[in-house]
Write a protein that binds this DNA or RNA. Structure first.
Lengths: 239, 239
DNA sequence: ACCATTATTTTGGTATACCAAAATAATGGG
DNA sequence: CCCATTATTTTGGTATACCAAAATAATGGT
C-alpha cells in the first residue's frame, strides 16, 4: 500500500479559520502538530501539490512552511530535493538528546537564579500531579504533562533564545520520546529523577539542578535506545 | 539620509553564477554574509522588491531566503511584518552568549571524547598562530581565526546538530563580537583563556575544557557589554 | 502654519503559470 | 519474460499578476 497523503480530520478550515497569522505560519503549525502526533509518519513523502490541496492553500505559502519545518528539523529533503517527514536515526536522536541535555542544564541553572517562588511552586505542583496520576491516565496526557514540566523549567530561566532552541529540540525529539514513554511508562526512575530536579530547584542550587537535569536526559538516551532497537529488531524479523 | 538598499559589489551574478544550489539558498547565503560583514546595518529595512531587483531574482525565492534568515535570527519582522536586519539589544546578546557558552562547553566535552589527536593538534596549531600573529594582522583576519578556533572545537565533538545550532548562534553573535574584538584587541586575557582551553583539550579533560570554554564566553559577555554601553553613550551624547 | 482627512503609492501575502529535471509508464527488441 | 530505451507525467524551482492592508503624499479646512 503506497502511503497516501490523507490529512484526515485536519485540513482546510483549520488554517483558514484562525486567520490571525499568515497561511504559511498556519500551515507550518498544522504540519508540525501532525508530525508530532504521528499523523504523518516519518519518511512519508510530502508532495507539495497534494499537501496544498489537502490544506486548501496554494504552493507559495506551503513552500515557506516546508522551509520552516526543514530548518526546525522536522522535514528533510531527499537527494532529489523531495520533502519528506524527517526520520532521524538512533544516533541522530542521541545527538539531539545530548544537546537538549546541555540546554536543560543551562535552563535549570538560570531558573535557580531567575525564577519566582511562584514559578518554582507551579513546577513542584506539576510534579505532584504527575506522581498522583501515575499510570492512571492516557499516555498522551501524561506525556504532555511531562513535556510541560520541562518547558516550565526552561521558561523560568527567562532566556528567550534558550526557550526557542529548546522548543526546536523538543519538537525533534517529541516522537521518539513519546514512543519511548508508552513502553516503559511510570518505571519509577522517571518520577524519582523528576523529584530530584524539583528538590534542587526549590533549594535554588544551580549545580545540583543542572546535574539532575543532565542525568534525567541521559537516562532518556538509554530508554529510547532500548525501545527503538527493539522496534528495529521486530521490523527486521518481519522482512 | 534615508538608508538606501545598495548591495554594492555583491548582487546579480554572485547568485546566478554559482547555480549548484537554489536561488533561495544562494540569496540566503549572500544576505547572511552581508549582514555578518556589516554591509547591511542592523535595523535596516529590507523591502522585498528592492532586494529582488538588487539580487536579480524574483520574490518567491527571496521570500524563502528571508524566512530562513528570520528563523536563524538575522532578520526580524517589524510590527507591520516588514523585514529588517535584526538589531539585538545588549540583553539579547547576553542571552545568546549564555546559550552559546553552554553549547561550547558541551562541544568541548564531546571533543575530549571524540576528537582525533590530529584534530586537537590542529586546534593547538590555530592557537599558536593566533599568539604569533597577535596584533600584527587585520582585525577581520584575526577575528575569523578566532571564530575558526571555536568552530573547530565544536566540529571535533562530532555532533552535527550541535554544529548547526552553534553556527546559528555564532551568526547571531558575529557582529557584536567583531565590534568588540576591534576595540580591546589582544588584551592578553583572550590569548590566556585560549591557552587554557587548548591545555584542557590536550589533556582530554572534559570538565576542565567545559569550564575553560564557559569562562571564555563569560568574559566575552563583559567585554561586549563595555563596548556596546560605550557606543550607546556616545550615541546619546550626539542626540 | 498646523492638523485631520482623503487619495495615492508602496508593501507583504497569496494564487497561478511555466519550466527543467526527475520519476514513472510505455514500448520494443532480445 | 526481462531489460534497455523512449515517451509521458509528476515534481520542485521560479517568475509574475493580483489583492488588501499599511504607509506616505496630497488636500483642505481652521
Amino acid at each position: 500500500m503506497p502511503e497516501v497523503v490523507d490529512l484526515g480530520g485536519f485540513a482546510k478550515q483549520s488554517i483558514a479559520l484562525k486567520r490571525r497569522t499568515s497561511l504559511a505560519d498556519g500551515a507550518a503549525d498544522l504540519l508540525r502538530e501532525m508530525i508530532l502526533l504521528n499523523k504523518l509518519s516519518p519518511g512519508m513523502p510530502l508532495p507539495e501539490r497534494d499537501i496544498c490541496a489537502a490544506l486548501g492553500i496554494s504552493r507559495t505559502p506551503l513552500r515557506e512552511a516546508i522551509r520552516l519545518l526543514n530548518v526546525e528539523g522536522l522535514i528533510e529533503y531527499s537527494a532529489a530535493r523531495r520533502p519528506k517527514v524527517a526520520n532521524p536515526s538512533l544516533q541522530e536522536i542521541a545527538a539531539y538528546l545530548r544537546v537538549q541535555g546541555a540546554l536543560e542544564a543551562l535552563g535549570g541553572e538560570l531558573a535557580c537564579a531567575n525564577a519566582t517562588d511562584q514559578e518554582l511552586e507551579n513546577i513542584a505542583g506539576l510534579n505532584r500531579e504527575m506522581i498522583a496520576m501515575s499510570g492512571k491516565e492516557e499516555p498522551l496526557v501524561s506525556f504532555k504533562r511531562d513535556m510541560n514540566f520541562h518547558c516550565q523549567i526552561i521558561a523560568a530561566g527567562r532566556n528567550s533564545p534558550l526557550v526557542d532552541t529548546h522548543a526546536t529540540y523538543n519538537a525533534r525529539l517529541w516522537r521518539a520520546r513519546f514512543v519511548s514513554s508508552q513502553r516503559k511508562m511510570g518505571r519509577g526512575s522517571t518520577l524519582r529523577e523528576h523529584q530530584e530536579i524539583v528538590d534542587a530547584l526549590l533549594e535554588r542550587d544551580p549545580k545540583k539542578t543542572a546535574k539532575a537535569l543532565k542525568h534525567h536526559l541521559d537516562t532518556a538516551v538509554s530508554n529510547i535506545s532500548e525501545v527503538l532497537e527493539e522496534q528495529s529488531r521486530q521490523l527486521s524479523s518481519v522482512l
